[in-house]
């Protein structure tokens, strides 16, 4: 059920974001979604790509420092209150969200969000028990690649 997410350390200055994106583009790797966390001094670029191992090698060979984390892709109804009810479920399961961001694609009337919990495995079990739909990587990439 877990998805591998790559994170790249960036300094908060011009040109630092384009370099890793360019490196992936040249290797023909498509970024399915990303998020950027930034502080005054540094940033963290988080990426979801299908072939994360290859992407990691490419990024590292360009001098980036790369972290691999397990995240969960969760389906949310794309309507008012859809997000809130999932968040309430997460809250009831006693899970703390480290951060989250969204995919641009949708499945029918549902949106897909990426959640980072401290322990992805435990979170996946708790969420399934709570009736929240966690998508596995096979289903996810099927979906993102078919559009």
């Amino acid at each position: 059920m877990k998805i591998h997410q790559l994170s790249v350390f960036l300094e908060n200055k011009p040109g630092c974001l384009s370099a890793p994106c360019r490196a992936l583009a040249e290797a023909g790797i498509n970024i399915h979604t990303l998020s950027l966390a930034d502080t005054k001094q540094f940033g963290i670029l988080r990426l979801i790509v299908r072939d994360w191992q290859q992407a990691k090698t490419v990024l590292e060979s360009h001098g980036n420092v790369v972290n691999v984390a397990e995240v969960l892709a969760i389906e949310v109804e794309d309507k008012p209150g859809g997000m809130a009810s999932v968040l309430e479920g997460i809250e009831r399961a006693g899970l703390n969200i480290e951060y989250m961001y969204a995919f641009t694609i949708r499945r029918g009337d549902r949106a897909i969000l990426v959640f980072r919990f401290e322990d992805a495995e435990k979170a996946a079990q708790a969420l399934s028990k709570a009736g929240i739909n966690v998508i596995d990587s096979v289903a996810l990439y099927d979906l993102v690649e078919k559009g």
Binding site: F42, I44, V66, N67, R116
Partner: peptide, 15 residues
């Protein structure tokens, strides 16, 4: 310089 050992994907840990 951030190394792979030092780097984390969360702002909290880097701070």
């Amino acid at each position: 310089e951030v190394t792979a050992e030092l780097f984390s994907d969360t702002v909290k840990e880097l701070e």
